[in-house]
Design a binder for these strands. Structure first.
Lengths: 218, 218
DNA sequence: TTTAAAATTTAGGTAAATCTAAAAATTAAA
DNA sequence: TTTAATTTTTAGATTTACCTAAATTTTAAA
């Protein structure tokens, strides 16, 4: 049996793996989970014993095959529950993360499948993030990060690659939501921030924000 | 903050309180939760410190005002989730208990309220058990236990007062479900078992079963 | 009403998941 | 390439929720 804490570690390692080719460092996991490096080392040993990760001391970890499967299953549940909360219970997109963090740990294969069916096999969650299917496959994405767009080009927001409440609320304040049209007016080399237009209103956003906005170009 | 284990203790004490006027004994709780009496004593001390129960050593416990509120809230969540599973996700009534045991611990007042609204403020769960409202009030019940019916009288099954899987599956095998008509043909003094008819087919059931069947007489 | 049985509590211990502080290994800088 | 800084691990504690075994209290029986 896999514990709640173990599930959270697997999920964190998967998330960190998406942004790097290399093994995931102890400190990176500690930062992600807001815990201490020594706690991470402890837990990594447990995950190694259960063959959920491959670990070389001082060199970091990678998810094993079975660890990856488990992690993807948790992401699947998280995102399906988010869809449920927004489409059925009328939650806002910036309210669902905390609740889905709890719901993602409910154990019942039958429940996940029934939920998926009930929701109509959605491919994206309310933040535009892809929902892996029953076999762990992610739907193909045609989006780019806003930070990767050329000066002058434009597109529509189809997702965000982070769903913490403060980020989403900041987007709300910028009047950015799914479907919003954005054009890159100027790229500032100094700090990689961007001058953009949001539905033709101009604004200035940091690289940090631009990196987490997924854009589909026409 | 109240932990998962603490919530399970509160729920167990509430359940046991329904069947007795007296304080709840350590052993009764241990039996209910399939744990040891010494573990129960430990936990009772924690609950006492948090003022969730009133406790007199060697004399048992009772839920305090706030402990009762918490326990009722858990029951409310359990039963609302059961309604969700059966009415929206097409689960059978004997499949939902285990999953609802997990879902009842999800923490979000807003979620419970939204779920209640979404389900149309149901008053009973799929086993006919009453669902307390937002204020902790249980709907009035007009049902009796089958074991309390006189010889010759009859009525319809409107609920069960236990929802473990083996009991519900036994009912399925007897062709008893919500709405089934039952008549008491004979009461056997020796073991308090009953000769009954189920939709006019005769059967013999133990007192244990009869006590857990809720009947509404015409 | 004394004694035996049953129930309950206490004492001491374990595993999971955390922590701090110190030691060891790796990386970067002079 | 030696040293300093950073990262990671180890050692030793803590808290929660359990456990077993022994001691204590209550209840029931003789």
């Amino acid at each position: 049996m896999i514990t709640l804490a173990e599930e959270n570690y697997l999920k964190a390692i998967l998330k960190l793996s998406k942004n790097s080719e290399n093994s995931i460092s102890t400190n990176a996991i500690a930062d992600e989970l807001e815990t201490k490096a020594s706690s991470v080392t402890d837990m990594i040993k447990k995950l190694t014993d259960k063959q959920l990760v491959d670990y070389v001391p001082y060199r970091g970890v990678n998810l094993s095959k079975s660890g990856l499967n488990k992690a993807i299953e948790i992401v699947r549940k998280h995102r399906l529950w988010e869809v449920f909360l927004v489409t059925k219970l009328q939650f806002k997109w910036d309210e669902v993360h905390y609740i889905a963090e709890q719901l993602e740990h409910i154990k019942s294969q039958k429940l996940v499948d029934a939920l998926d069916t009930y929701l109509g096999y959605p491919q994206h969650d309310p933040h535009g993030e892809p929902i892996p299917n029953k076999d762990g496959q992610f739907p193909k994405s045609f989006s780019k990060r806003l930070s990767e767009l050329e000066k002058g080009s434009s597109g529509q927001v189809v997702g965000v690659s982070q769903d913490n409440q403060s980020f989403l609320q900041y987007l709300n304040s910028l009047k950015i939501t799914l479907g919003t049209s954005i054009r890159v007016i100027q790229k500032i080399d100094f700090d990689n921030s961007l001058e953009i237009t949001i539905n033709n209103e101009s604004a200035h956003i940091s690289n940090d924000v631009a990196r987490n906005l997924l854009i589909k170009q026409k």
